[in-house]
Amino acid sequence: MYYKETIRQMYDIGIGSLMIIFVVSLFIGAVTAVQFTYQLEGTLIPRYYIGYIVRDMAIIELAVTFSSIILAGKVGSNIASEIGGMRQKEHIDAMEIMGVNTASYLVLPKIIAALFMIPILVSVAAVVSIGGGYVAATSGTYSSEEFIEGLRSFFIPWNVCIMYIKAVVFAYILTSIACYQGYFVTGGNIELGQASTRAVVYGIICILIADYIIAVLLTG
């Protein structure tokens, strides 16, 4: 039962969020390229740096943080509403009566699914962001060769590790906060809505705090 529930959650979190992550990442990469094209104009910085900047911005910060913030909204509110709705409709009580450890059955599969799927989504986001940056840069004043040369320059594998560390930490934060808010909801629909909102707001704030701490610890 736990296995089936985990697979269902993996599908919901992973496949269910793929489209929004794809669209957002594409534009993040594109906007990063356009902004840096503007800032690098008239400077002595080599032109191929545009690919290097887009790559590292995407890998270290934008792909993982933007994706996690978006997932805190989409997945976090979804989880809080789902568990909160089950609390209100006495589904959780029904499981308790059957002897099910509801905290484990309802929360664990979601956290495991998020820990697996969110790093995968972040990988997709990083690749798509770089793709978006490539399209935007080469549509402007840069050549394909310049952008690709930048992509291949100064690559530090540790940055990819930082991305995955952030993805795992953010995944845990956003799902555990959402599960907590849903599981302990009391009252009616208004309270359920408030719990869902709290899941998103607290999730985003905690992700940003964690982002800063990880940045200081791993790159400071």
Partner: peptide, 20 residues
């Protein structure tokens, strides 16, 4: 012990509590 006891208990809820 509680889990063991609960396996001997069945309950019908006011709102049925069937999983949608």
């Amino acid at each position: 012990e509680l889990i063991k006891l609960r396996m001997q208990v069945g309950m019908l809820f006011q709102g049925n509590a069937l999983f949608d």
